[in-house]
Design a protein around this nucleic acid. Structure first.
Lengths: 153, 153
DNA sequence: CACAATTAGTTGCGCTCGCAACCACTCCGA
DNA sequence: TCGGAGTGGTTGCGAGCGCAACTAATTGTG
């Protein structure tokens, strides 16, 4: 348990929460991306699009951008890449012809069905290094900071 | 308190810890970078270099890279930028003429002395949205995951 | 009905990053 | 002492990103 005393002179980066949080996020991200990168050839934006589209019947790029908090150009490119690989398909919406309804193809659904359990298992495995108590505290902490920063869903 | 049940079918990205962790790290980073970017014109790599060099009497780029876990090219460029702005200076080490001893200039020390308290205050303010209990749990959780991933200092 | 303001999505551009290759120097073993 | 392996640090290059500008379609207001 090493939190700096609040106003120690001469900041030590290794005890600085924002820095550690960043390092941790990168570490966790790499730990996970082994699965979707090496095994399925997806990068992070693509993986997020797959995850978002797969848990719905179809949605717009706009929705994906809001829900993943990715920039719309990043979404646009990820979607284009996935369409290229025929994992998703797009159909112009009849109601609003600016929109394009995004959904998984059969191959996309197959990949999704294979991918998601593996990723969830990795998450479970990762979090299993925390006690129940620690996990609750950790998530509660994340939530409080999310709220403070206005990041809630 | 919203953790998904471990094996829920159809993953919801907004309840997925690695995703949330990433979003949180970005949010915290942005919250902080207001200070060192807008007020001191530093970007993240530069800020990390300043923080690392400032808390020491002088060190090598190698040391900075290890301690901040940044790629050595990123360190190299940040250091070059800071030298350009005369916030740090470099002297070839006598002992090993491959190394270059990095240290703050007078102007660099002045900036450091002004910057660090502001940043620590921001961190304190951020963490003050957690109860003592939550903070302890949060940090304990971070630490456990860091250890699991082999990220300890 | 017409026209300005807004929104979905794409694309050109400049910037940053990490990889790989490189230079200069040191270390080490024959 | 010589030569190859290893290390500190820099640089060229390609990939990915966000911003700003754009197209196409819709909405709102007179």
């Amino acid at each position: 348990m090493t939190v700096r005393t609040p106003n120690e002179l001469g900041l030590e980066l290794t005890g600085f929460v924002p820095y550690r949080l960043n390092r941790l996020a990168v570490g966790v991200s790499n730990h996970l991306s082994d699965i979707y990168r090496e095994r399925f050839g997806l990068d992070i934006p693509e993986w997020r699009v797959m995850a978002t589209v797969g848990s719905r019947h179809g949605c717009t790029a706009q929705y994906i951008a809001q829900s993943t908090r990715m920039h719309k150009t990043r979404v646009s490119r990820a979607v284009a890449g996935l369409e290229e690989r025929e994992l998703i398909e797009r159909a112009s919406s009849a109601a609003d012809r600016r929109e394009r309804e995004v959904r998984l193809t059969k191959a996309g659904r197959r990949m999704y069905a294979e991918l998601v359990p593996l990723v969830l298992e990795r998450e479970r495995e990762l979090l299993s290094c925390l006690t129940k108590e620690q996990l609750r505290g950790f998530v509660a902490g994340m939530e409080a900071i999310e709220t403070f920063l206005g990041l809630q869903d």
